[in-house]
Design a protein around this nucleic acid. Structure first.
Length: 159
DNA sequence: GCCAACGTTGGC
DNA sequence: GCCAACGTTGGC
């Protein structure tokens, strides 16, 4: 089973917001980057594990785990002129952007801050979160996943 | 709020 | 198809 990381701005939609949704599930809309779209549409499979990362906030950090809960389908917001995610260039007969339902699983025992992850840069070589700031959907290698889970189990940051 | 990184657009 | 200009992301 593959593992992924999704970014979200907690002021807009946090992991706790996801946990509070009906069925703890939300259509993950608004992805408007082609590489991210390709991961979402072609790379992911239902049941895959997803780390949720909070960006553009006081403590940028991986905060919890969710699950891919649907196949990819067209993101309706691309056709809504009132939406922030409206894309007038997307053809309804051939939609440009997709989404998947994301289902809450759990919060990590503690948030795992970006700054702490950077302290493990050697072990996390190739992890797009540290190397490609703008990607909002990215794969997580199994050895990186293991380290993240291990670090998150410690009560405090340590080296 | 600043600004570096970097993806996208569009003229040629 | 190149590449400069532009816009956005996101840490700090």
């Amino acid at each position: 089973m593959a593992c992924w990381l999704l970014k979200t701005e907690p002021d807009t939609f946090s992991l706790s917001d996801l946990a509070a949704r009906p069925a703890q599930t939300e259509p993950w809309d608004g992805v408007r980057n082609y590489q991210a779209r390709n991961f979402l549409r072609d790379g992911m499979h239902t049941g895959d594990e997803v780390f949720i990362y909070h960006s553009s906030c006081a403590l940028p950090a991986i905060v919890g785990i969710a699950e891919v809960a649907s196949e990819a389908r067209p993101d309706p917001s691309q056709f809504d002129p009132l939406s922030d995610y409206y894309d007038p260039r997307s053809d309804p007969a051939n939609p440009r952007w997709v989404l998947r339902d994301i289902h809450y699983q759990r919060h990590l025992r503690r948030p795992l801050p970006l700054a702490e992850l950077r302290q493990h840069a050697a072990a996390l070589t190739g992890f797009a979160l540290l190397e490609r700031n703008r990607l909002s959907v990215m794969p997580v290698a199994s050895e990186h996943r293991s380290l993240i889970l291990q670090l998150s189990e410690h009560r405090d940051a340590r080296v």
